[in-house]
């Protein structure tokens, strides 16, 4: 599938109807989502025929993109039931089989590293400090191959240092810098639309070096 085609399909997905500020629910736009998954598939072979988990999946954009690119199993995990309902409908509209689980990523109970790749657009931690690193910590425990994640560019040094030192990453690489446009969703947003600089990261978990296949 071509990048443009992927972006168009994702552009038709339904997004949050009443976003919850405490969960930092911002839709992952089709531009960013398509690029994240396209890079994971075409530069690193991390998506097709793989087990992919979408952490904090929201309306399921990243997971849907993974399924469209040929992931064998996609699991979308989110704490919010309304988001999961929209994500299920989105998957159905695109005729994609995606498993959804309602769970707080910080308390996720998980066996082994059967998931190959985690993709996520985690909360940036502007409302609940440290939640972005909680997501990354769990993702690097669950994934055997790679974790793709978006983080504010302003936190680049901190992310790099912490993921390598404390979070079981053997490598942490910024693949590109993107503009994340946050539409005016909430009352406290004064400007109509803001652009935030975000980094697209690829982390490799340590244990993946002893691959079992």
């Amino acid at each position: 599938m071509k990048l443009k085609q992927l972006e168009t399909l994702l552009g038709d997905l339904q997004q949050f109807t009443t976003p919850k500020v405490e969960l930092e629910q911002y839709p992952t736009g089709p531009h960013i989502a398509s690029r994240l998954l396209y890079t994971a598939e075409n530069s690193f072979d991390d998506i097709s025929n793989k087990v992919v988990a979408d952490f904090g999946c929201g309306c399921g954009t990243l997971g849907a993109a993974a399924a469209l690119l040929g992931a064998e199993l996609v699991i979308g995990i989110d704490i919010d039931p309304q988001s999961l309902e929209i994500a299920s409908m989105n998957a159905e509209d695109l005729e994609l089989d995606i498993d959804f689980v309602q769970c707080d990523i910080s308390n996720l109970g998980w066996r082994g590293q059967i998931v190959d790749t985690v993709v996520m657009n985690p909360p940036f931690g502007t409302r609940k400090k440290g939640i972005d690193m909680d997501f990354l910590f769990v993702a690097l425990k669950v994934a055997s191959q790679a974790v793709y994640s978006l983080h504010k560019t302003s936190t680049r040094d901190y992310i790099k240092r912490t993921s390598l030192r404390d979070l079981n990453a053997s490598s942490a690489e910024v693949l590109c810098e993107l503009r994340f446009d946050v539409p005016q969703l909430y009352k406290f947003h004064k400007k109509k639309e803001v652009d935030i600089a975000v980094d697209l990261w690829r982390f490799v978990p340590k244990r993946s070096q002893v691959k079992d296949n």
Binding site: V101, N107, G109, W110, G112
Partner: peptide, 21 residues
């Protein structure tokens, strides 16, 4: 939920040592 997902999910209640399967 498919059985591949079931094969990974585990109960993570505080104090539980064996939450799988």
């Amino acid at each position: 939920m498919r059985l591949l997902t079931h094969n990974m999910l585990s109960s993570n209640i505080k104090g539980v040592t064996k939450g799988f399967p």
